[in-house]
């Protein structure tokens, strides 16, 4: 699979986790591709840390508004029902439990649902931003990530070695080959991508996979 197609595969599956009326936050990277896979009749509200609730897509060229960006600096549009708030209120939505579902990328995620995605000591330390609050307080946290890193090491591991963003905070992991759910007993393999064998998922995963009684589904 090319990079584009497996990112799209992940984003398309992730879109199924959003339903009517939900308040949603997208992290950087693959999460920004999710919205386009939702049918237009599903009304949901995208929250950005900088105080926008109800972001639409990126602004078509020539229609940019200098006062309207997302948390990554991209010019965006609004959907009907949108609102603006200051940073304090924006994070009250997050910490107060009003984010129904958030999608974040990962450097490492463990079978117990620990997430590391903000710092590689000595190499990458730009600051925590809003990630820790989103990870810890979103009602449902979905990690969307490549199954393996560029050196083919598993990103889904027994224990994270990098400093954590949040502990036991991940509810679902979606990669290009599998959908997995961290549980207290371990990582449950819910779905396998079409054309991928269970053995391949096992080999490419850094922690033991539990199987549901009816066996994993397909996506």
């Amino acid at each position: 699979m090319s990079t584009t197609s497996y990112k799209e595969k992940i984003a398309a599956r992730a879109a199924q986790e959003i339903s009517e009326g939900k308040v949603v936050n997208f992290g950087i990277g693959i999460p920004t591709l999710i919205a386009k896979f939702l049918p237009p009749e599903v009304q949901f509200f995208v929250h950005a840390e900088n105080g926008v609730l109800g972001m639409g897509g990126r602004c078509p060229r020539g229609r940019e508004d200098r006062n309207l960006i997302d948390a990554g600096g991209a010019y965006v549009e609004l959907v009907p029902g949108a609102s603006f708030s200051d940073s304090s209120v924006s994070f009250a939505m997050i910490r107060g439990g009003r984010l129904d579902v958030a999608f974040l990328g990962a450097l490492e995620v463990s079978g117990k649902g620990d997430l590391a995605n903000w710092i590689i000591p000595g190499k990458y330390a730009p600051g925590i931003g809003g990630a820790m609050e989103v990870a810890q307080k979103a009602r449902r946290l979905v990690v969307v990530t490549n199954h393996n890193d560029r050196a083919d090491n598993p990103k889904i591991v027994e224990e994270c070695t990098l400093p954590l963003t949040g502990k036991a905070c991940v509810d679902l992991i979606i990669t290009e080959i599998a959908v997995m759910q961290p549980t207290r007993r371990g990582l449950l393999l819910l779905e396998i991508a079409e054309g991928v064998e269970l053995e391949e998922v096992r080999q490419r995963t850094g922690t033991e996979l539990l199987l549901p009684p009816e066996g994993p589904g397909r996506f």
Binding site: S87, S88, S90, F91, R95, G129, G130
Partner: peptide, 15 residues
């Protein structure tokens, strides 16, 4: 020197 805070916590410290 740089001191980092989670974004909403920085907002609340100021608030």
């Amino acid at each position: 020197e740089v001191e980092f805070y989670p974004q909403g916590i920085l907002a609340e410290k100021i608030r």
